[in-house]
Write a protein that binds this DNA or RNA. Sequence first.
DNA 1: ACAAATTTAGACACTCTTGTCTAAATCGTC
DNA 2: GACGATTTAGACAAGAGTGTCTAAATTTGT
Lengths: 229, 229
Amino acid sequence: MKLHVSPDIFPPRGHEAKRLSIVDSAATVFCREGFAGANIDLIAAEAGVSRQTVYNHHGDKEKLFVAVVRDLTERCNAGIFATIATFPDQPRDLEADLIGFAVRLNQNCICNRDGKFLRKLIQTEGERYPELFAEWREQGPGRTWPAIAARFARLAYGGYLTIEDPDVAARQFLGLVNAELQTTFMLGGSPREDEVLQSATNGVRTFLRAFGKRRSAASSEKQSALASA
Amino acid sequence: MKLHVSPDIFPPRGHEAKRLSIVDSAATVFCREGFAGANIDLIAAEAGVSRQTVYNHHGDKEKLFVAVVRDLTERCNAGIFATIATFPDQPRDLEADLIGFAVRLNQNCICNRDGKFLRKLIQTEGERYPELFAEWREQGPGRTWPAIAARFARLAYGGYLTIEDPDVAARQFLGLVNAELQTTFMLGGSPREDEVLQSATNGVRTFLRAFGKRRSAASSEKQSALASA
DNA sequence: ACAAATTTAGACACTCTTGTCTAAATCGTC
DNA sequence: GACGATTTAGACAAGAGTGTCTAAATTTGT
């Protein structure tokens, strides 16, 4: 009935812009109010479109929710892989470089809008959509954690670290650099920049005390030397 | 109008039992459906009482929710302090004793019903009730974390560990022993017993590599000796 | 400027939920 | 067994939200 010529670009132009705007507002409202509490009228108003337009684009509330989660997962994954690409494979100053990596990971992937929203949606609605969040698990942690582990394995192979199990080390790295942000994460807040840096610094120091190249008895000052470099 | 004799025990007997039953079902349903999605009829049915009884006991949905959170916070705190009391102050086998402590903490406080529910409610509704969850923060992490830190300080003072900042060490200890359970926690699941043990074991090993008594050059075997004791 | 498609506002039916009310049934205790 | 208090089932009004429909207004490509 509609597709008269090319089924390719039947949304002319501002069409896609509206779709994006709707998904964005929906993410905000779903996170703030939860799925049940989210109100389509409110989403439409926040997106600057009419309610009918929301239904035209996404069909119903549940389809809209799924679109939101897929969108967030995709963008977050892209961000994480972009950040993993900055992992210090040949560090000049191991402690400083790892702290930098940890801070970038937090600021660009975990504490930013997308990361915060995705985390909250997983926590609040994860049990209601098992297949959707199984997909997230495979595409997210299932692919990013091994990628980080591989980088640590490379550092170990290069003689920078002493690691038995790179997968365990990678998870512990993440646990350590986020150790001081847990309460903030719980309540859905965003830690300040200096809190992120503090947690990362403390976490990396401990990580290196555990996995750093074992300093010989003669050079136990090496760590503090590194710290001030 | 009602209190004819003693205002003390005016709920005769099964009254309090019903109150408990209601709060319990409410916790379950609030966690599963979120505040907005929770249905008083469903809570009443799950508690085995009529809807009117729910209103008789708790007034309205919001008051019921607050009662649930206070209840959970109280019970969780009690459990955590009871577990902290089992902290190994004079360890015979430091690694094994810390692993045991970590496992107890997880099994009895974090992964059990109350812990799981409280965590989820904080995550999902924390932003909607700032004062309620500020109270939790003060009563919960605000009191338990320093208590754990004090125990680690005591271990350091006793010569078992080398720690600069006990508060940081305590947070990192928790981050490490839970490092492998994050994804499960996210999705609201309960890790299996062997997963808890595995994560605790790996976490404590790394913790001791970082903070264990610095083996002098001559006695670098001390740690593995401790481990097998 | 024209024609097609999209968007809009508003009304609408429908369902669901909250919280109240009442009269009957049940419980616990003396 | 009787009494007072609690609990129950059901009906009820009021409100809110979803999803549909329609006709008018607006945007877009040509």
